Simulated scan of single mutants.
Amino acid sequence: MQRVCVIGGSRYFGKLLVERLQAAGHQITVINRGSSRPTTGIEHLLVDRDDEAALVAALGSRTFDVVVDQVCYTPVQAVIAARAFAGRTRRYVMTSTIEVYDPATAALPTTPTGTPVPEEIVDPATWLVAMDLPWHDEAYLEDHYAEGKRQAEAVLTRDGSFAFASVRSAHVLGGGRQEFTGRLAYYTKRIAQGDEIAVHAKPLSTVFIHHEELADLLLWAATRTGFTGPVNACSDGLLDVRDLAAIVTEQTGREPVYRTVAAGETASPFSFDRHYAMSNTRAKQLGFAFSRTADWLPGAVAEALTASAAPTV
């Protein structure tokens, strides 16, 4: 049994992670602002992680074997976390994102198109941190999501108060209405209704992960102490937007109606005119076995179709 602190953990794969930790017999403390209370048997600290004094006071004398941070989006939040948990935990795992590799958001080394991107393309140990940017501005943060994650990783990598690992998640799908981004529902609804989908002339492939698989990987990353640094989390198999639409077509019987947009223009979700599909080789070498996207995506599409057809309560 380990003492595990989860920051966030109130919805989707974060909620699943908490459930899996509890099922595995770990002692769990969840920290969030109260949007959702954890189940019976899990300690809940109701506090805003951005308020350092309140966070330290809420933690009291608690110590943990590992902290899993689901909601760290900026270097400011990372600095607060580093100070608050220094001396309280031996290990810290942050949920990050595939977006850190997006060449549209930063000057990054290039890899050949079609070659999955390895972790070292974005090295948090050398990434520039700028604390004076308007990270508290919601609009700025939304526009600089990828950079916020890169800099948060950089802060926690360099802090040295604990062993640090980041899990860079692919695009997460599955769970029907639980999939709060609505990106898969966008395709199931539009294709079923015969509405247009905006795609690039030559959309490039990307990678995905099922929400249950991501919860499993986060559990593995939290309880495995033998590695640090970033690790990519994606199911096996590259798919582009037309591959995704084809799976929806198989279940709806409706052919997608495409509208082609120029490179650089806004398109539908998962239509990319730039390459940054991730490699999951490091996680495999460390011992995690991934599923194939093609095996679970039809089921996720079916869930989305069922959810869209169900009446709203």
Score class of each variant (00 low, 15 high):
residue 2 Q to L: 09
residue 3 R to I: 03
residue 9 G to W: 01
residue 10 S to D: 06
residue 11 R to G: 12
residue 14 G to H: 04
residue 15 K to T: 09
residue 17 L to K: 02
residue 19 E to V: 06
residue 20 R to D: 13
residue 21 L to C: 12
residue 22 Q to G: 06
residue 32 N to Q: 09
residue 33 R to T: 15
residue 35 S to A: 15
residue 35 S to K: 13
residue 41 G to N: 05
residue 41 G to T: 01
residue 43 E to L: 07
residue 47 V to Q: 04
residue 47 V to P: 02
residue 49 R to G: 11
residue 50 D to Q: 11
residue 53 A to H: 08
residue 53 A to F: 05
residue 58 A to P: 05
residue 63 T to L: 13
residue 66 V to R: 04
residue 66 V to P: 03
residue 69 D to Y: 02
residue 73 Y to M: 01
residue 75 P to W: 01
residue 78 A to H: 00
residue 81 A to L: 14
residue 81 A to W: 01
residue 84 A to I: 06
residue 94 M to R: 02
residue 95 T to M: 14
residue 95 T to R: 10
residue 96 S to N: 07
residue 96 S to T: 05
residue 97 T to G: 12
residue 98 I to H: 06
residue 99 E to K: 02
residue 99 E to D: 13
residue 102 D to I: 10
residue 107 A to H: 08
residue 107 A to T: 15
residue 109 P to E: 10
residue 110 T to G: 04
residue 112 P to T: 10
residue 115 T to F: 07
residue 115 T to Y: 06
residue 119 E to C: 04
residue 127 W to Q: 10
residue 128 L to S: 12
residue 129 V to P: 03
residue 131 M to C: 02
residue 142 E to F: 02
residue 142 E to A: 13
residue 144 H to Y: 04
residue 147 E to N: 10
residue 150 R to E: 04
residue 151 Q to M: 13
residue 156 L to Q: 11
residue 159 D to Q: 03
residue 159 D to A: 08
residue 161 S to A: 15
residue 162 F to W: 11
residue 164 F to H: 14
residue 169 S to M: 13
residue 172 V to W: 05
residue 173 L to W: 09
residue 182 G to N: 05
residue 184 L to Q: 03
residue 185 A to M: 14
residue 187 Y to T: 08
residue 191 I to V: 15
residue 195 D to P: 04
residue 197 I to V: 15
residue 198 A to N: 10
residue 205 S to A: 15
residue 206 T to I: 11
residue 207 V to G: 13
residue 209 I to C: 03
residue 210 H to E: 15
residue 210 H to N: 14
residue 210 H to W: 02
residue 212 E to Q: 14
residue 214 L to V: 14
residue 215 A to V: 07
residue 215 A to D: 05
residue 216 D to E: 12
residue 219 L to P: 00
residue 219 L to F: 09
residue 220 W to T: 14
residue 222 A to W: 06
residue 227 F to I: 02
residue 228 T to R: 07
residue 234 C to H: 15
residue 234 C to T: 08
residue 235 S to E: 01
residue 237 G to C: 07
residue 238 L to H: 08
residue 240 D to F: 11
residue 243 D to W: 08
residue 244 L to F: 10
residue 258 Y to I: 09
residue 258 Y to L: 04
residue 259 R to V: 15
residue 266 T to P: 07
residue 266 T to K: 12
residue 267 A to D: 05
residue 269 P to S: 06
residue 272 F to T: 13
residue 273 D to I: 14
residue 273 D to S: 12
residue 275 H to K: 00
residue 276 Y to N: 09
residue 276 Y to L: 06
residue 276 Y to A: 10
residue 279 S to D: 11
residue 282 R to D: 14
residue 284 K to P: 04
residue 288 F to R: 03
residue 292 R to S: 15
residue 293 T to G: 07
residue 303 E to C: 01
residue 305 L to G: 06
residue 309 A to S: 15
residue 310 A to V: 07
residue 310 A to W: 02
residue 311 P to G: 01
residue 312 T to F: 03
residue 313 V to G: 10
